[in-house]
Amino acid sequence: MVRPLKRKKLAAKAMSNLMLYAGNRRIFRKDERGIVSAVPLLDPLIQNLDKKYIVSILASLVHSKNSRKQMIAAGACVYLPKLVEMNIEGAKKVSESLGRGKIWGVFSRP
Rank of each mutant, 00 (worst) to 15 (best):
A91S: 12
K9R: 15
R100H: 11
V39D: 10
R100P: 09
P4Y: 06
L18R: 01
E32Q: 14
P110L: 10
P110Y: 13
K69D: 11
M86W: 06
G105S: 11
P81Q: 00
G105E: 13
K92G: 10
I72D: 04
G99D: 03
M86D: 15
L18E: 06
A12H: 01
V84R: 11
A38C: 11
R68M: 06
K92Q: 12
K69F: 03
I103N: 11
H63G: 11
K93L: 11
I57Q: 08
L42A: 05
S97T: 09
G23P: 00
F28N: 03
K51W: 08
E89I: 12
K30Q: 12
S37F: 01
L42K: 05
I57M: 02
P44L: 02
R29W: 04
E32G: 11
I103F: 14
V62Q: 15
A22H: 13
G34W: 05
V62R: 14
N24A: 00
L20E: 14
A22S: 15
A73K: 09
A11N: 08
L98Y: 07
V62G: 08
K13P: 04
M15A: 15
G90K: 07
S95H: 14
A38T: 10
D50A: 09
K82R: 14
M19L: 06
I35N: 03
Q47H: 13
L83Q: 12
S108E: 13
V84N: 09
A91K: 10
L80M: 06
M1D: 15
K13S: 09
P81D: 07
A74K: 07
L98C: 07
S64L: 01
A11H: 06
Q70T: 04
C77E: 15
G101H: 10
R109F: 03
R26K: 14
V84S: 05
A11C: 12
R68C: 02
S60T: 00
G99A: 11
W104A: 09
D50P: 08
L18H: 04
A38W: 01
L10R: 04
P44S: 03
P4V: 07
K6R: 10
V39Y: 03
Y21S: 11
R33K: 12
K6S: 14
L41W: 02
I35R: 06
Q70P: 03
R26S: 13
K65Y: 08
A76D: 09
S56E: 15
K82F: 06
E96V: 06
K30R: 14
L41A: 00
S67R: 07
A12E: 01
V62P: 03
E32I: 03
L5E: 04
K102H: 10
M86E: 15
R26G: 08
R29G: 07
N66L: 09
I72C: 09
P40V: 07
R26E: 14
M71Q: 00
K102W: 10
P81K: 03
H63F: 01
A38I: 02
V94W: 06
I88Y: 13
I103Q: 13
R109T: 00
V106K: 13
K93D: 09
V78F: 01
A14G: 04
I27E: 15
V84K: 08
A59E: 10
A12C: 06
V36M: 12
G105V: 08
R29C: 04
Y79K: 05
S37D: 08
A74R: 02
